[in-house]
Structures are given as structure tokens and as C-alpha cells.
Simulated assay, not measured.
Amino acid sequence: MSQTASAPASGRINWTNLITVVSAAILLGTETVGAALAFGWAMAGWLGFGDIGTWILEALSLALGVAALVWFFRRASSVEPWRG
């Protein structure tokens, strides 16, 4: 028995790979967003930026976290191809 995954026929979705990639992205996304917001809040408080500065730093760190999540999803989709 072979353990390797075969690519689906042209135009079909490989649901096993898609569920794997989406599940990993959800797990990584919640951790990344939470860590990014906590980092922005903590750094703004430590540096004394005030409310507006805190929101700006949280937004910047959140944008970086979302960019990392998009990068992860694209790389994971290339390793686990879910489209035929």
C-alpha cells in the first residue's frame, strides 16, 4: 500500500488536502492574530503611546500577522495541492 497522495483529476478538488490546509491556517491564524494584537498592545503600553498610538501599533502588527498567514496559506497550498 502506498501512502503517497495522488493528484485529483483536472479541475477537481482534493478535499483531504484542502481540509488539512484550511485547518492548519485556522489554527495558525488564531495564534498569529492573538499574538499580533497582544504585541501591539504591550509595546504601545510600554512605550506610552496612548490610545491612538495603541490602535495604530495594533493595526500595524495585525497587518503583519495577516501577511504571515497569507504567506503560510500560499506555501501550504503549494506543498499540499488541493486543486487539480
Rank of each mutant, 00 (worst) to 15 (best):
M1Y: 15
M1E: 13
S2Y: 14
S2L: 12
Q3K: 08
T4C: 04
T4A: 13
T4R: 14
A5F: 02
A5D: 09
A7S: 04
A7T: 02
A7V: 01
A7H: 06
P8E: 02
P8F: 06
P8K: 04
A9W: 01
A9T: 09
S10Q: 11
S10R: 01
S10G: 05
G11D: 00
G11M: 07
R12L: 09
R12D: 04
I13Y: 00
I13N: 01
N14L: 03
N14F: 05
T16G: 11
T16K: 12
T16I: 06
T16W: 02
L18M: 11
L18E: 01
T20N: 10
T20E: 10
V21R: 11
V21S: 02
V21K: 06
V22T: 06
S23L: 15
L27S: 07
G29E: 13
G29N: 14
E31I: 13
E31S: 11
T32S: 14
T32C: 09
T32F: 03
V33I: 15
V33H: 10
V33G: 06
G34M: 12
A35F: 14
A35Y: 10
A36V: 08
A36C: 13
A36I: 03
A36K: 04
A36T: 11
L37Y: 03
L37G: 01
A38E: 10
G40Y: 08
G40T: 06
W41K: 15
W41D: 14
W41G: 10
A42R: 12
A42T: 15
A42N: 14
M43A: 12
A44T: 11
A44L: 09
A44Y: 03
A44H: 06
G45M: 05
W46L: 15
G48Y: 00
G48A: 02
G48R: 01
F49T: 08
F49D: 07
G50F: 04
G50V: 05
D51L: 08
I52P: 06
I52F: 08
G53A: 02
G53D: 06
T54W: 00
W55N: 15
I56E: 09
I56L: 14
E58L: 14
E58A: 15
A59P: 02
A59I: 08
A59V: 07
L60N: 00
S61M: 10
L62V: 07
L62F: 05
L62G: 03
L62R: 03
L62D: 01
A63P: 00
A63H: 01
A63N: 03
A63S: 07
A63C: 07
L64Y: 02
L64D: 01
L64F: 06
G65E: 06
V66W: 00
V66L: 09
V66K: 00
A67M: 05
A68H: 00
L69W: 06
W71F: 13
W71Y: 14
R74F: 03
R74A: 14
R75L: 15
A76D: 07
A76Y: 03
A76V: 02
S77P: 05
S77Q: 12
S77V: 05
S77D: 08
S78T: 13
V79S: 11
E80V: 07
P81S: 01
G84Q: 08
